[in-house]
Design a protein around this nucleic acid. Sequence first.
DNA 1: CGTAGCTTTGAACAACGTCAAACAGCGTGG
DNA 2: CCACGCTGTTTGACGTTGTTCAAAGCTACG
Lengths: 221, 221
Amino acid sequence: MQTAHATLNNQITSNATLLRPRPAPEFGTARAVTKDEEIFAEGDRAAYFYKVVSGAVRTFKLLSDGRRQIDAFHLPGDIFGLEKGDEHRFSAEALGDATIIAYRRCSLEALASRDQAFANQVIASMMNSLERAQDHMLLLGRKHALEKIATFLLVMAERLTEDGHVDLPMSRIDMADHLGLTIETVSRSLTQLERQGIIELPAHRRSIILRNKAALERLEA
Amino acid sequence: MQTAHATLNNQITSNATLLRPRPAPEFGTARAVTKDEEIFAEGDRAAYFYKVVSGAVRTFKLLSDGRRQIDAFHLPGDIFGLEKGDEHRFSAEALGDATIIAYRRCSLEALASRDQAFANQVIASMMNSLERAQDHMLLLGRKHALEKIATFLLVMAERLTEDGHVDLPMSRIDMADHLGLTIETVSRSLTQLERQGIIELPAHRRSIILRNKAALERLEA
DNA sequence: CGTAGCTTTGAACAACGTCAAACAGCGTGG
DNA sequence: CCACGCTGTTTGACGTTGTTCAAAGCTACG
């Protein structure tokens, strides 16, 4: 019950601790990563946070028996790996070859005093993550397989905007682990949508053409 | 996971800090709400955000056919209803009789310049929400019914800390809609845990005694 | 070409949901 | 004080969605 209070203050004090003098690194250091390369792992010390420049990144948690939940895919411009505490609560891997910028982690106050605009960007990105997470809980907890797929396709179409032609950067396994399904169910749902003429699955397996967005929106529930 | 320890330890000190007379920010306006009373609804203009003083609040989203996902329960000290955009993306209702404080919503910048400490509290609360949401996605997407229940009981025990004796402020329906289950499955899982001697369900249906936390933690997966 | 890694497809199965009924606590009113 | 009905919870039988297990198809890439 006081937990909230506690953590709140926790934040403030720990920020103070982090304020120790340091060469100003507003401009992080770029880094190139290759397909499936680990950027950081759950439990690692959170010395940096990151921004995607090109490519895409997945962040995920694992259960002891290997079940995986991908909480988000991060596309160019997205910030990820920012933590309240001092260790990463997720693992992060590149979906394909990608470039990212690493920023040395520091307190928001320090950040704000040095570069207000960047600080605001970071906060805004946090709120975006939160909104996405909240929408995703509804999807995971209450939507059926077909509704999950429909929602996912619409969201990705929106984020990748190639006008109904979505070139997915992730495999079926990644989709499944993001949507709380198995790859088989993902596959079956997609072919069902294709048979209904709502989408098209060209030979190149990673790309999808949305033929009937209205129908998808109806399916979204 | 000493993170938990850390937070608990800091709790004491930080509460002390918070109770100190603080340069008054917006002293929000207190409001008493009764069981199931709506505090705001999804789509409402987000003119205020709130802090729970006593009682508990649920925030949730609905699908068109009435399926509901409760994204979080808010206990005393928790902040809820803070939005990035200008309308609420959730509905909020009191679980039982409760009192809350309403703060007039304003930009974080304005808030920060006027009362840095309070601004930090707000940001920290956002990060808390995000962390909870992320953990909850793992639960919703990848855990089985029994694992969901086990996790839920441990989390609630931690937050309500009456040491193994949890007095839940919510009904089975609320639990179900939070965990992505049905009330029947919640009920069955609880009785299964009771039959295994891991918990005890006294006559008063809202209270639960955790007899074997270790077993629950093993079940958590 | 040939092999490796995804993806799709099919059939059997299990976990969870649905439907229905019994049960318990609790407030109300006779 | 007890009967009554209301509401929330538990329990049971059965159905369905999505998973599991297995195998075959594609693509890509050497």
